[in-house]
Design a protein around this nucleic acid. Sequence first.
DNA 1: CTGGTCATTTTTTTT
DNA 2: AAATGACCAG
Length: 751
Amino acid sequence: MVVSDDVLLANLTEPQREAVRHVDGPMLVLAGPGSGKTTVVTRRVGQLIALGIPPWQILALTFTNKAAGEMRQRIEPMLPDGLPGRRGLTVATFHTFCVRLLRRYADEAGISPRFSIYDQADQRDAIKRALGEANLSAKNWTPASVGAAISQAKNRLQEADAYAGQASDFYTRCIGKVYRAYEKILAANDALDFDDLLLRVAKLLRAAEPVRRELQERYQYLLIDEYQDTNHAQFVIAHTLAAAHKNIFVVGDPDQSIYGWRGADITNILEFEEHYPKARVVPLGQNFRSTGHIVEAAAGLIRHNRRRKHKNLHTELGPGEHPTVARCSDEHREATLVTDELRRRHEEDGFAWKDMAVLYRINALSRVLEEAFRAAQIPYIIARGTAFYERKEVKDALAYLRVIANPRDDISLRRIINTPARGIGKTTLDQIEIFAIDRQLGLREALGRVDEVEGLSARARTAVKRFAKTLGEWTAPIRVGGGEVGGMLGELVERVVRESGLEAMYQRSKAEEDQERRENLGELISAAAEFVPPEPDRAAGASDDPPDEPSLGAVLDAFLESVALVSDADLIDPSKGVVTLMTLHAAKGLEFAVVAMVGLEEGLLPHRRAAESDLELEEERRLCFVGITRAKRHLLLTRAAVRTHRGIRQRTIDSQFLKELPAESVITCDFASDIDELDDPYSASDDGRGPSGGGAYASFPVGCLVRHATFGLGRVESITPRANGASARVRFNTVGPKTLILAYARLERVE
DNA sequence: CTGGTCATTTTTTTT
DNA sequence: AAATGACCAG
């Protein structure tokens, strides 16, 4: 045994040890923010292996690739060298795990092993077509709302027929029709959407007994991270895998459940003890991350949720600094307040940029922040993993690749058949489609038989033939096995980008936008060239010999899969040395020394769409809780008195959550009282003059040490701009708190 | 068939 | 504000 108990149990609290030592049977770890959850999970894996359990019998499931990668990295050093099959440990996201299973057991699942994975954009296209087929106008039925309904049904494991069968009212009956049509389209395209990945596996486990037995036997030990965010499908998968041995170890925090809208079912964690009556429950309440006032603020906020299990959150890191709540006049001031604050923390307190983050409720808020960061010359990154792959040119290139990987993917084929323009317009495409439908053919097959299609111009016919030929040339070498594959994916992508004419499409123009698109295509080629396919999974008895080279097609499949399943959080790279800007959702599971949260306004946080039901409001509160608890040392909460959103400038209202923070644990300052004195909110924008307080904040930031001629040394508690000049509230060491007008007080900054 | 302009619309969060 | 979609002139 290489890793000893001493190492595995070092520096742990008693409850943490209990969790790490746990071996057989169900266990629920209720892990508050910063309670050392990841440490517990990774060390427990180390413990299991130290006890002689083969790694390939362990399955750890997470929600993001980032979390999976981190866990793998932290487990790796604990694995004894030379252990046979040490690589067999499975650490993956639920979705990735399911994709692998579905490719391996495609026959049993009744699908093609080459299925495409449709993201929400593809899903939207498919739903639009489905709406047409169900004869419903896209006017009253937006793809988004229909998609949400279908997604919810799938999360409940309710398939189209079952859904339509029990539809009672007009609305659900219509959705049922679309659902059926949508499923037909997916099946015809050999495509699965995100929800299918889970649903199909749940179904597979239920229906195919041999597969179920095989997997149950293999995965003797199950660990699930962020259990509060599992939906019903994921619950069924986990429950089924663990049915025989009940070695299910789940970690989560009901107070951090923020994916209810995506079907996450908080009762999974709240009722774990009912599902597993013999479960042991370990609460981890001690916070090793944040200082006292931050923890108090978070605890005070979350106490307002009624539907929760109370946990006693506490820290032993000392009181630390108070979180600051600041009101700014508009979103631009808000953004510069944030950059000023971060710069001060960087230059005066020595915090590295990578230890800072700015969090917001909606992505739209990142734009103004981005401008401010650029202007302030502070290095930053916006954590939006999917953004790159959502760009038109990249989506087009990927659509080509998908058509190559999966010849039946007509949604992708339709996307690129005339991009760039090659003379196959709408009329031509319509003719071919009619031909295809009449003969029950896929679009790709129909292309190969253009000669039989009636009513086409000679011109159109040659254009189609040429395109079909090119497609064939790309596809031919894909599935032949053996041979050298290394580097070939990059070459393939490069070839496609060039021969498709995508590159040329942006070549001629020197416009900055086109140049950027060319660069993005180049970046995609590099990503493909550098792509390393994951090692094939090997279970018991597998030798450690290098496996056969996979075919280029398999590498392409893996590449497309990795692209489809990226998450926003995956982009966070602490080695980069930059400030991270991201949504509150993406921030879950992360921590930073300095955190700024912007847009604490009604309608934004809580979001207006969520303010209607108590259930949703509580989820918004949890979201706010997640944001606050990301901060280790310093927390700045801001809001703008006036904000422009979707082109409309509007006054805002304080987030109700701000009032719920315990008054004694935060410091409040207001840089926008000038706004209140104006009748016309439209003139309230920054004219660069007048009392803003922003300058005062920069020269006398809250918390800084100052000297006064008569009162001596003191600390600034808040700054308030007034009509007659900004005033500061200062707590002096000798005489206590005083309010001073900055213009007269002649304060001097110390430190 | 292509490429432009004008009108219309946006659920916030994501695997 | 931005992005999509419909429509129309070449």
